[in-house]
Design a protein around this nucleic acid. Structure first.
Lengths: 193, 193
DNA sequence: CGTGGAGTTGAATACGATCAACACCGGTGG
DNA sequence: CCACCGGTGTTGATCGTATTCAACTCCACG
């Protein structure tokens, strides 16, 4: 059962009672996403966020020249959502789709109102998750501002050792903020040493 | 009194009782920061975050080539801190200093534990502030990845109309992720039309 | 006055983008 | 079984944006 993954996830982090866990489960809807299936479309109000049980999702924006820029990859046990849109019912800033056939658990904006019912520790956990996202985003911004693409690529390999094998290189390039051609050259250069 | 600014700030957002407000105030320490005074030094555990009453602070990193990259400006009524470092007592990822003579209210990592005492609305407020930071950071990353410097500069002018006048241009350049020379050329080009 | 930081301007350079051609591979259908 | 195809990645030539390094102006401030 996909929902089991959620129990496992929370058990490692919070001492929730069985009653709390099963109440929590009611807030999630299991769903299969086929490769390329779109969960949230940039510009539309987003109805769901997802906890990834299996597979891999990404959040990305498409700019005016039709180029895609990836904000986040979400492999197993990661959360992904456009929180701003989800909570405030405003148009989503980015799209979310599946890069592989995936099993996810969908949650709605109400999850955030349930924060309070589950006690402060639960709220704190989600606060920390949000903090982690912010730190990750800050690090990436710093990287883009201060490091050349080759260093950013190596940092990526170090941070997500498995993703680089799993994903088409063009997605990695879209994450790093360079073209697939440039990434190819960087890889060639690195292999040559 | 600088602390009054905090009351004003919260009164617009939360229905706190007088007792709560005065308890809240005990968690803040007024302090004057001279121009160029450093509040948090990259690499050291940070002891404080700040709410800016008057003046302007910035958070920034210094890379291996001694170039500064600005993550955030914090003028009046903004919060600024290295939350990750503050809460977990780990080395700060960036420095924070004053760009002008400033009045700030310092708070320690304990503020986050007090979240719970002040009720869920209070927690939710800070959750939303964190969300806003994340969205801002996401927007900046997208901008750096997809927009040329000229567009990013115009976006900056639009988003922070007053800051561009208040601050030396080299800081604006460090925020945009370009050199002062490049910013100067962009401005020259824009003025010529 | 004169000194140093801030901003501008110029010339040479570097890094990545763009456009185009091509190799490779897995699947599909004749 | 093979021919064809689309998607993926590589490689080459050229171009553009921003960097680097240097010189110079303009003030604010001692």
């Amino acid at each position: 059962m996909p929902i089991e993954a959620l129990r496992t996830y929370f058990q490692g982090k919070l001492p929730l009672t069985e009653a709390q866990l099963s109440e929590l489960e009611r807030l999630f809807t299991p769903r299969h996403l086929a490769r390329h299936e779109v969960l949230i479309r940039q510009g539309e109000a987003s109805r769901y966020g997802a906890f990834v049980v299996r597979g891999c999702l990404r959040s990305f924006v498409t700019d005016d020249r039709q180029k895609e820029h990836i904000l986040q990859f979400a492999p197993e046990n990661w959360w992904i959502s456009d929180q701003h849109s989800l909570v405030r019912h405003e148009p989503a800033l980015f799209s979310i789709d599946a890069l592989e056939d995936s099993e996810v658990l969908l949650f709605s904006g109400e999850l955030y109102t349930y924060f309070q019912k589950f006690g402060p520790e639960f709220q704190t956990l989600f606060y920390q998750l949000l903090q982690n996202s912010l730190v990750a985003m800050q690090r990436r911004l710093i990287g883009v501002l201060s490091e050349p693409a080759e260093v950013r690529y190596q940092d990526f390999l170090h941070l997500y050792p498995t993703l680089a094998q799993r994903l088409p290189l063009r997605h990695v390039a879209a994450y790093l903020g360079i073209t697939p051609e440039s990434l190819s050259r960087i890889r060639g250069e690195l292999a040559r040493r």
